[in-house]
Amino acid sequence: MYILIMLYHFVLIQSEERSGNPSDSMKGLYCRLNDSEEVKFVIQETDVPATLGDHQVKVQVKGCALSPVDVKLFNDLKLQRDTAPVGREIVGTVRQVGPKVSFFQPDDEVVGILSLDTEVSGLCSTVTIHEQLLVPKPEKVSWVSAAGAVRDGLRAYTALHTLAHMAVGQTLLVLDGASPFGVLSIQLAHYHGVKVLATAHSQDDQKFLEQLRPSVARVIGVWDAKVDLAESCLEETGGLGVDIVLDAGVKLYEEEPEAQQPLQLPHKHDIITLLGVGGHWVTMEHNLQLDPPDAHSLFLKAASLSFLNDEVWTASTARQGRYLHILRDVMDKLSTGTFRPLLEDPVPLYEATVSMEMVQKRQVRKRVVVQL
C-alpha cells in the first residue's frame, strides 16, 4: 500500500499549472479502453497549455519511441481516464522555457520521458514537460537513437546497478537477450567487466546474439527443446550458478496452455536452481508468486529477488538527481558507441497507429521510433 501511495504521489508533484491557462490544439495518439478491456489506438485533438508553468519547458518533438501501454499500472495508480496518451520517450528541441527554468535554454536539444500523468501524447508536434524530466542530447547522437534508447537504457541501469549491484567478474544471465532491453543490458554489463550469458528464443535470435561476441560469452538456444537452461548455466559456471538473472517474464506453473506461452519462458524453479549463492534475481513478472519451498531455496542461497519497475523513478523527488544522472549516462554511452540500440527503421507519423498496435501486441522485436 505504501508503494502505491508513493507512486500516486507523483500525480501531485509532476503536474504544474494545468488549469486556467489558454491552450493550443493539436493532434496526438491516444489509447482507449472499450468494455472488453481491449486497447484501441486513435488519433485525436488535444489541448496543450499556451502558458508555461514556472519550471516547464516547451519542446518541439523530433522523435518519439513507442512502448506498450501498461493499462494495469494506470488502474493501480488510479489514473483511469477515457483515453491515455501514447508515446512518452521523446527527443526534440526546446522552443520556450518557464520563468524559473535553469537547466535549459531555447534551441537546446533534449531527451526525456513524459510522466505517467501527462495529458499530452509524445506524438504531438510540441509538448510541455517539467525541466527535471529532461537531459541534454549529445550532438553526435541522432534523434532516433536517443528516443529509442532512453527507456531501455534506464531499465538496464535500474536492473543492473540499482537493484543487482553489478560488479566486475560476476556472471549475468539475460533472458531473451535479442530484445531491445536485453541488448542494452548485455552491452552495459560487458562494459563493466561482467561475463554475460543470454538466451535466444529463435534461430534468428541465436545468430544475432552470436554476432555480439565477445560481449556475450555463451548463447543458450532455448528454442531447442533439448536444451536445458539450468543445466547449461551450471555447466558454464562450474556448478556455482550465475550471480545475476534478468528475466523477461517467467512461467509460474508447471503446466500452462501453450497460448499463454508465446515465448520460451523459463520456470521460476529453473531460475532459482541456476542462481548462485548471494545472487540477485531481477524480475519483470509483476504477478510472480513464490511458494514456501521457493523462498526457502532463496534463503539457503542468501539470494535476493527484486522487481523491475522503471516507472518508480518519477514517483519521488528523493532520487531525482540519480534518475537524471542515469539518463545523462545513457546518452553519454550512446555518444561513445558503448550503447548500440536495437531499432526498427523510423516510421512516419501517419503509420504511428498501425505501428503502435503491433507494439502493444508485441509483434515487433525491435524498438519502434516515430520520426516527426
Rank of each mutant, 00 (worst) to 15 (best):
L246N: 09
Q206P: 01
P292N: 05
Q60I: 05
M356K: 02
G98F: 03
K62V: 00
Q371R: 13
S202Y: 04
S25D: 11
D47A: 13
L114E: 00
Q320H: 08
C233G: 05
L77G: 02
N75C: 08
I244R: 03
L29N: 09
V369Y: 03
L116C: 00
N75P: 01
V245Y: 04
K226D: 15
E45V: 10
G221K: 03
L188I: 07
M26C: 12
G28Q: 11
V216A: 07
L290W: 06
L66T: 03
A295Q: 14
P68Y: 01
E258F: 09
L234K: 07
G276R: 13
S202A: 08
V48M: 04
H280C: 15
P99Q: 03
E258G: 11
T118N: 00
S23N: 08
Q44D: 11
L229W: 08
A225F: 10
H286M: 12
T336A: 03
V370C: 05
S232R: 13
I271P: 06
V101G: 00
K27S: 14
L342K: 14
P293Y: 05
P99H: 02
G153W: 02
A146G: 07
L372T: 02
L123D: 03
V354K: 14
D107H: 11
S25M: 09
Q211F: 00
R18M: 12
L7Y: 05
G53D: 11
V354L: 11
T353G: 08
P138R: 10
L252C: 01
Y350W: 11
A149N: 05
H190P: 02
